[in-house]
């Protein structure tokens, strides 16, 4: 529990934690919090010329091109974005770590197969891959998650692989072998903990790229289907009206940035707190 105590003692990390937690609460309790339905188009949601309304008393963050309440759409959109961010990232980290660890430690034939496969995946343009898969299976939220996970697995595997090969050469690994430690023990008890800092950095940075990637997929029509909102498709729908209705891009963009920042702050603190070699040095 010393990690929790360490977090409490770092105000910046605590702010990050509270903000990130708030996002999760908002997403879960969306029907209770959102002032309107995300789909409802209001008559008074557009000007007489048919332009969206800027933030006002009735629509706190303004309205979108179809006269829907932006705040409500963002609150519901948080669900999609968080689910995609969490799962796509989680799967990519898990798969990438397993591939990288195995390839880095076992060497030989297994390594060649695994690493060539990741190279192939990384060489294939991510968007075309995504569009092909989505076109074959049909646009669904799970597909978006799998596609993003697939695209992100390669880089994670590469980084983990590089780190594992250098860790495997370290003398303490030879020392572990000498006392009779098996491969599983060496991999999961002695190498994996050393990968934590990298994984945390990748995981936190991945949140923002994942949310944006989902937005691109949605924009191309292979992601989340309208009228279902996500932060990504709100930005993309509004981007051509950036000059006349900047709030359409600004608020969802800000939400993405704020989420990424808060997760980053927590991740940073965790990385330090989980490193025993920094104990007593901060």
């Amino acid at each position: 529990m010393s990690v929790w105590r360490g977090l409490v003692r770092r105000p910046v990390a605590m702010v990050g934690l509270v903000v990130a937690f708030a996002f999760v609460v908002v997403a879960i309790a969306a029907p209770l919090i959102a002032p309107y339905s995300p789909q409802e188009q209001f008559f008074d949601g557009l000007t007489l010329e048919g332009a969206p309304l800027p933030p006002n008393e009735r629509f706190l963050l303004g309205t979108d091109l179809l006269g829907r309440d932006l705040l409500s759409r963002m609150i519901y959109g948080a669900r999609t974005s968080l689910i995609v961010g969490l799962f796509a990232n989680g799967i990519a980290l898990l798969a990438g770590t397993l591939i990288g660890l195995t390839a880095g430690f076992l060497r030989g034939f297994v390594r060649s197969i695994l690493m060539r496969a990741t190279d192939l995946m990384m060489a294939f343009p991510a968007l075309i891959l995504a569009i092909t898969i989505a076109a074959l299976v049909g646009p669904r939220l799970e597909i978006v998650i799998y596609v993003i996970a697939l695209v992100n697995t390669g880089p994670v595997a590469r980084v983990v692989y590089a780190e594992t090969t250098s860790l495997a050469e370290r003398e303490f690994i030879a020392a572990e072998r000498a006392i009779g430690a098996g491969t599983a023990r060496i991999l999961f008890r002695h190498i994996l903990p050393h990968l934590l800092p990298i994984l945390i950095v990748w995981g936190t940075l991945g949140i923002s790229t994942t949310v944006l990637f989902e937005a691109i997929l949605s924009y191309l029509g292979v992601g989340v289907r309208p009228p279902e909102p996500s932060w990504g498709n709100i930005v993309f729908d509004g981007q051509s009206y950036f000059q006349t209705a900047p709030w359409l891009v600004f608020f969802p963009g800000f939400a993405v940035a704020l989420l990424a920042l808060s997760v980053n702050l927590v991740g940073d603190a965790l990385r330090d707190l989980l490193d025993p070699t920094l104990r007593g040095r901060h």
């Binding site: 303490f172 572990e176 050393h194 490193d275 025993p276 070699t277």
Partner: peptide, 13 residues
């Protein structure tokens, strides 16, 4: 081993 610093996993008590 020669180097006691290198032969102990730094992340274990």
């Amino acid at each position: 081993f020669q180097d006691p610093h290198a032969s102990l996993d730094p992340r274990m008590s």
